[in-house]
Simulated assay, not measured.
Amino acid sequence: MYIVILMYIVATTPKLASGHSSFSKEIPNACLRDALFWKRHVSNRFECETLCLMLRMCQSVNYRTTDRICHINFKKAYDVHSVVLEKGTTYIRDRKNKTSTPCRWGTCKVNEICAVVQRTNKLCLPFDATKDCDNDSGRLIILNTSDKHKRIVRELLENYGGPRYYFQVGGKKEASGDWVWLNGNVIDSTGPHWFPGNPNGDGICMDLMIKNSIDGLNDYSCRSPISFICEILI
């Protein structure tokens, strides 16, 4: 049996004055719970903020200064009563300018995410959804039955519904041209579970695309870090 997990990737660092933050609101010694999309170790708070700027699903962050852990959240708290006390963590929300980052000026390699160093230089960091799932003793989800596909879509629409969302799943295109799940089972490229018009040659990675309540599998280039769904054996 598997459970399904949706992963949505002390004081402030001295070099980062509050006036230079990319966000307009923060609550010291507080964090937002039950909203985690992705987490990683970063060099400083500014790098944490930059990750949020670059990820479409990010609505806020928890930055833990003690070990420089950045929590990317898929939702935000609307008042101080929505967060919990956590010493050494700063809750940050409300972007000032969504596009003010040098990451907009260039691209990173496959399986990398763009971050910023010292406000002007770009840094490419490793991003591997498959490895993140493996680290939790799981795998990227395999939607190999109609019932499982429908249940996951229903859960996503109820909890994360929006005009358009993408969630990486455990399918890929082989050198032979066949699409396969991570367990080796072949995926029918003309089957009913693909989003209309797909696969269309965009790439060798696969996501579950939801657009205006229409859903289906979609091929993409692997270059853009997106939300992903893990399933863990229990």
Rank of each mutant, 00 (worst) to 15 (best):
W194K: 02
N121T: 15
G138R: 06
V4T: 04
A11F: 04
M57S: 15
G197F: 01
F228H: 10
C70N: 06
M206Y: 00
A35G: 09
K87G: 08
V110R: 13
F23I: 00
C133E: 04
C103D: 15
V186E: 06
D147V: 07
V116R: 10
E86P: 02
V80Q: 08
Y166D: 11
T90Q: 02
C52W: 07
T65Y: 05
N159L: 11
G216V: 03
S137E: 09
I3W: 06
I142P: 00
Y2T: 07
L156G: 05
I142S: 10
D67M: 12
P199E: 00
M57N: 14
T66R: 14
S227H: 08
K76C: 02
T190Q: 03
R164H: 13
C52E: 04
S213W: 00
V117I: 10
T101C: 08
F74D: 01
Q168I: 03
M209C: 05
D215N: 13
W179V: 02
H149Q: 13
V42F: 05
W105H: 14
F74A: 05
R154G: 03
I210W: 03
L6Q: 04
A175F: 06
G171P: 00
V116G: 10
C70M: 07
R68M: 05
S146T: 12
V61D: 06
R45T: 05
D219L: 09
C124G: 09
I210Q: 02
T120D: 14
V4A: 00
I69F: 14
A175W: 02
K75L: 11
R93D: 13
C114V: 05
R45S: 13
F23P: 01
V61Y: 04
V116A: 11
G106F: 14
P102V: 15
H149C: 08
I187A: 01
K75N: 10
V80H: 07
K122C: 05
D79R: 07
T50N: 08
N111M: 13
V186A: 06
C70F: 04
